[in-house]
Amino acid sequence: MTPAPKSPFTPSRQIAVREEWLAQVQEDAIDPSLPIVDPHHHLWDREGERYLLDDLLRDAASGHDVRATVFVQCGAMYRVSGAEEERSLGETEFVNGVAAASASGTYGPVRACAGIVGFVDLTLGDRVTPLLEAHRAAGGVRFRGVRNRTAWHPSPEVRSNLLSPPPGPLEDPRFIEGARRLAAQGLVLDVWAYQTQLPYVLAVARTVPELTVVVNHCGGPLGVGPFAGRPAEGFEEWRCEVLALAELPNTVMKLGGLAMEVGGHDFHLHDQPPRSAALAEAWRPVIHTLIDAFGASRCMFESNFPVDKGMCSYGVLWNAFKRLTERVSTWERTALFSGTATRVYRLRDAPGCEDLPEPV
């Protein structure tokens, strides 16, 4: 057995991925014919950390029927020169190139990065519109939305990135103006916020009802720092906030991200990685609460790879999601695993994705 390392984090504050450790647990895919659209993953090439197209495809080849994916911004391949607000165009250009390579069929049937969620600082006022147009030109029909750096908590123990953003910008009035410009272009807003920030997410969604707000990672339930050792209280506080969000019809929830260290689970510290049954048991209260509140047509399962790969493998992760939906209807399962993501990110418009399952 491969024991957990003394320091389980990478330089960018992610749980370190240990392929040999993950390889100790192998599972056949449950319901392998169920189409999957993975609406949330990253690509990067950082010092000591690499996750590019070949790595994603290797994980996706786990026996599950992964048809397409959506890339979400992570600060990869920014331009090294030019105006600061334009440097993130490098990420959109890079990912669109990866998507074009995937759409050629040369690398197999998965249509990687069929949707792109990039970065544009929505507090930039009048400059937001030309920047959005530049990203749409760089990403073409694949460019579907924007995510800003928003996950913040005053406790230094609540961290999910190397560089924690300053407080905000969700409560900044300029962000609301940027969000209106985003909606006017038919683009979505992805938001990664901890449970303590969900009232700000609610305010944005309520103030800009024409905007689709995609809440990442189950709304950020916390289990570290001031939330450590008080799971019942923390869960109830989180539940109240997500139930309020669910009342707004323009909000959508991504089901995943629960294998991050901030959630309080410690599977990465065990001698062996978790099996899907253990993950399903640990995540059931959160996942079932969200499906009941938002409904399947406003929920989508996500991998959050390679971030969640520090705790579990891709195949085991999707098996856990399938275990959590054993008793839902066929229609609901289709929505959760492919239909909602296909509709929200309009993936059937992307090259090579015309045959994706019907959006739900």
Rank of each mutant, 00 (worst) to 15 (best):
12 S>Y: 06
18 R>H: 10
24 Q>Y: 01
25 V>P: 00
36 I>A: 00
41 H>R: 06
44 W>Q: 01
47 E>P: 02
47 E>T: 07
49 E>Q: 03
50 R>W: 05
70 V>F: 10
72 V>D: 10
74 C>G: 13
75 G>I: 02
87 R>N: 02
92 T>R: 05
98 V>Q: 01
104 S>F: 09
106 T>A: 15
112 A>C: 04
115 G>S: 08
123 T>G: 04
126 D>T: 06
128 V>S: 02
131 L>Y: 07
143 F>W: 08
156 P>K: 09
156 P>H: 12
160 S>H: 10
161 N>M: 08
171 E>H: 14
184 A>V: 06
185 Q>R: 13
192 W>M: 03
193 A>G: 03
198 L>C: 08
201 V>K: 03
213 V>K: 05
218 C>D: 09
224 V>M: 08
228 A>W: 04
228 A>I: 01
230 R>F: 03
236 E>G: 11
239 R>I: 03
241 E>V: 01
250 N>C: 08
253 M>V: 13
260 M>S: 06
262 V>L: 14
266 D>M: 12
267 F>K: 14
272 Q>K: 07
280 A>H: 09
280 A>S: 11
282 A>W: 09
287 I>V: 15
304 N>G: 01
309 K>L: 14
312 C>H: 08
317 L>V: 05
321 F>C: 09
339 G>S: 09
340 T>D: 02
340 T>G: 06
343 R>W: 09
346 R>K: 15
348 R>I: 14
352 G>D: 07
353 C>W: 09
355 D>C: 00
356 L>D: 03
